[in-house]
Design a binder for these strands. Structure first.
Lengths: 337, 337
DNA sequence: CAACAAATATGAAACGTTTCATTTCAAGAG
DNA sequence: CTCTTGAAATGAAACGTTTCATATTTGTTG
C-alpha cells in the first residue's frame, strides 16, 4: 500500500490530454468546448482529483472560511446563533471557523488578529469587549448587536425597542397592572440596551410608574433579586408588582425560580416575560424556559451572512433590525393554552 | 489611502538585509545568529509582517485547522462538547472548523470530503450515520462514542457500562425497589449502547426484574411513554415502578414532565436519574435538568484533542473510556440537599 | 598565520493553483 | 482556395512560503 500522493491539476491535464489552463477552466466553471469538458471531467473522476485549497488560496487570497466570534456555545442563545450561522454559510459553500472568546478581551483580539492574518474571508462577531480599534480595516465584518465608536461597521440586531414595548403591552393585555423590569447588563453598549428604552417608553405611554433592577452583571444577581423582592412585599406578603419583563430569558428564569421558592405562584400572582426565546433542548417543541419576546435567530443569522457575503458593489446597511415576536412559555396568562 | 499590499518575507528580508531563508528560520524558531535574529524581528515589527497562511499551507500541507463534525450545537450536550473542544484546540494553537451535519448522512459525507480535501489537519467526529467507509485513510481522526466496522479508528467515550450500573446503584441507595430503564436509541451502534448493558447487569446483580422502554427514536416518544405509564398503573393509580434510569437527560426530563402532569410527585413517588449531565445554561451553577450520570465532557474533549494531536510515533489507543459521575439534580432523594 | 571544521547564511527550486498574453483552431466570407 | 475573425486552448509566470544544496563566515588548532 503505497502512500498515495494526491493528484494535481497537472496530472489531470496529462490524463485528459489538455492544457493546464483548460483544466482550471473546467474546475472553475468557465466555458470550454464540450469535448474538452467531458475529457477533463472524466480524468478528474478516474484520478479522484480534489482541488488543493492552499494553492488556490495562495493565488486568490480567498479561503471560503468565515470566523464567528462568540463568547461560548453553552449559552443557548449563542449556541442557536452559531447553529444558524453555520447553516447559512453551508448553503453558500462557506465554512465556519468557530471562535469562542469567553468574553475575554485578549482572546477576542487574538482571534481577530488570526482572522486578519489572511485566514478567513470575513468575520461575524458577537463580542463583549471594545474591540473596535483592533478590527482590521480591510476585512469584511458584521457585528451582532454591539456598537463600536471608532468605525462604521454593519450591525444586525433584533428590534429591541419594539420588543421591550411589546413585552409590556403583552403583560398589560394579560391583566398586569404593575410590570417591573429586570436587567443585569454588560458594560459594553449595544442594541439590546434599547429593551429598557422600550420599557420606559411603554410606561410613559400607558401611564405606568417605572420600577426596575438595572445593575451591572455580577455574581451577586441572586442577592440583588432577593433584596428587590423583599422591598416589594406588602405587610401581608403580597407583592406590589404583578408582572416582570426580564432583559433576558436567563435572568427571567432565575427570577421565576426565586418567586416559586418564595411561595408565589406564576403566572397566577406574577406573570413573567423574558427576552431571547431560548429553548431547553433547541428543538421546535414547546420548550421555552419562560414566555418570551423571541429573537428571530434564524433570520438574524441569515442576515449576517447575507450582508457579509454581499457583492462589493452593494453598500452594506449600517444597521439592520429584525422584528422580535412574543411566544407563550408557561409564565403568562394568555388563556390560549 | 493606498490599498496596502501585505508585506511578504521577501520584503522583510530586504528590510533586514538578510536572506529569505534566514527570515524563514526566525519565523519558525530555528536557531540563527543573535544579530540576524534581532534584525529580522525588528524588520517584522516595522513592516507589520504576518505570515501568509496559504503559502505556508501550500508548502507544508498543514492548516492548523481541526474539523469537528457534530449534529448541531442546540443540543446542550453537543454544545458543551464543542465548547470544550474549542478550548482544548485553542490551547494548542489550533483552530476549530465547526461542521453541523444535523445527522444527515449526505452532509456528514460532504464535510468529510471537504476535510479530506486537504483543508484540515484532523477530524473529531460525533456522527449519526455509518460514515466509516467515507473516512479518508490518510486523515487523522478521533471518533466520540461511535463504532465503525470497516476501520480501526481511535474512539473516546464515557464508561457507559459503569455509568449505567452506577445509576441503578444510586437509585437503590436512595430507596428505590423497582427501577426501570428508558431509551430511544439511534440505529447506529456506539459506546452509549452499553448504558443498557449496565442496567441489565445491575438488575442481575441485585436481583431485580428488568423492565424498560427500548425503542428506535421517533416522533412518537411521548405516546410511547404514556402507554408505558398506563400499563404500569395499579388499580389505585399508584405505579409499579419507583425509579427511572433514562438513557439520556433529554428523555428523562421528558418523562419527568409527563409524570408531573399526571399528578405523580418527583422524587417522592418516583426518582429519576438521566445520563449526560446537560445543564440549562451551561454554567457551573446547579442547573442540571435532572439528577444525572454526568459525562466528563471537558476531559472527553481534551482526550479527543490529545489523541488527535499526538506525535505520530505514539500509537493511538483504539478505545479510551473516562468515568462518568453521579450528580444530584432535583429528581432524587439523596437527602443531601 | 595557515588550515581546517563547524556553524551559519544564502537563494534557487518547488508546492499546486490562477491568470493572461499568445497561439491555434474553426467557420464563414469573398 | 484564401483570408478574416472570433472562439478556444495553451502554458509560462506568479502567488509567498519552506527546504536544501551550496557558499560564506567564524572559531580553533598546530
Amino acid at each position: 500500500m503505497t502512500s498515495q500522493k494526491a493528484p494535481t491539476m497537472k496530472d489531470v491535464a496529462r490524463e485528459a490530454g489538455v492544457a493546464l489552463g483548460t483544466v482550471s477552466k473546467v474546475i472553475n466553471g468557465i466555458p470550454v468546448s464540450e469535448r474538452n469538458r467531458l475529457k477533463v471531467e472524466q480524468a478528474i473522476q478516474t484520478l479522484n482529483y480534489e482541488v488543493n485549497t492552499y494553492a488556490r488560496g495562495l493565488k486568490t487570497q480567498k479561503s471560503n472560511l468565515v470566523a464567528l466570534i462568540i463568547p461560548n456555545t453553552t449559552n443557548p442563545f449563542f449556541a442557536s446563533f452559531a447553529d444558524h450561522i453555520e447553516a447559512s454559510l453551508y448553503k453558500k459553500g462557506l465554512r465556519l471557523l468557530l471562535c469562542c472568546a469567553d468574553g475575554i478581551p485578549q482572546k477576542e483580539i487574538d482571534y481577530l488578529n488570526m482572522a486578519a492574518n489572511n485566514k478567513v474571508d470575513g468575520i461575524i462577531a458577537l463580542t463583549y469587549s471594545d474591540i473596535g480599534k483592533y478590527i482590521p480595516p480591510s476585512l469584511p465584518i458584521v457585528v451582532f448587536d454591539r456598537f463600536f465608536e471608532n468605525r462604521v461597521i454593519p450591525r444586525v440586531a433584533s428590534d429591541n425597542f419594539s420588543g421591550g414595548c411589546l413585552a409590556i403591552e403583552k403583560l398589560l393585555e394579560f391583566g398586569c397592572r404593575h410590570p417591573i423590569y429586570i436587567r443585569f447588563h454588560s458594560v459594553f453598549p449595544g442594541e439590546s440596551d434599547k429593551r429598557k428604552d422600550g420599557y420606559l417608553y411603554a410606561c410613559e405611554k400607558y401611564g405606568l410608574e417605572p420600577d426596575f433592577i438595572d445593575e451591572v452583571d455580577c455574581d451577586d444577581r441572586l442577592r440583588i433579586m432577593k433584596e428587590f423582592l423583599e422591598k416589594h412585599k406588602r405587610p401581608d406578603g403580597s407583592l406590589t408588582f404583578d408582572g416582570v419583563f426580564s432583559h433576558t430569558d436567563y435572568h427571567g428564569y432565575m427570577f421565576y425560580r426565586l418567586l416559586l421558592s418564595e411561595g408565589y405562584r406564576v403566572p397566577e400572582d406574577v406573570q413573567i416575560i423574558g427576552f431571547d426565546g431560548i429553548r431547553k433542548f433547541g428543538n421546535d417543541d414547546d420548550d421555552l424556559f419562560i414566555s418570551s419576546i423571541c429573537q428571530p435567530v434564524e433570520l438574524l443569522a441569515e442576515k449576517c451572512v447575507e450582508i457579509l457575503t454581499a457583492a462589493d458593489g452593494t453598500p452594506a446597511p449600517c444597521l439592520t433590525l429584525l422584528p422580535a415576536q412574543y411566544r407563550y412559555g408557561g409564565t403568562t396568562r394568555d388563556g390560549k393554552r
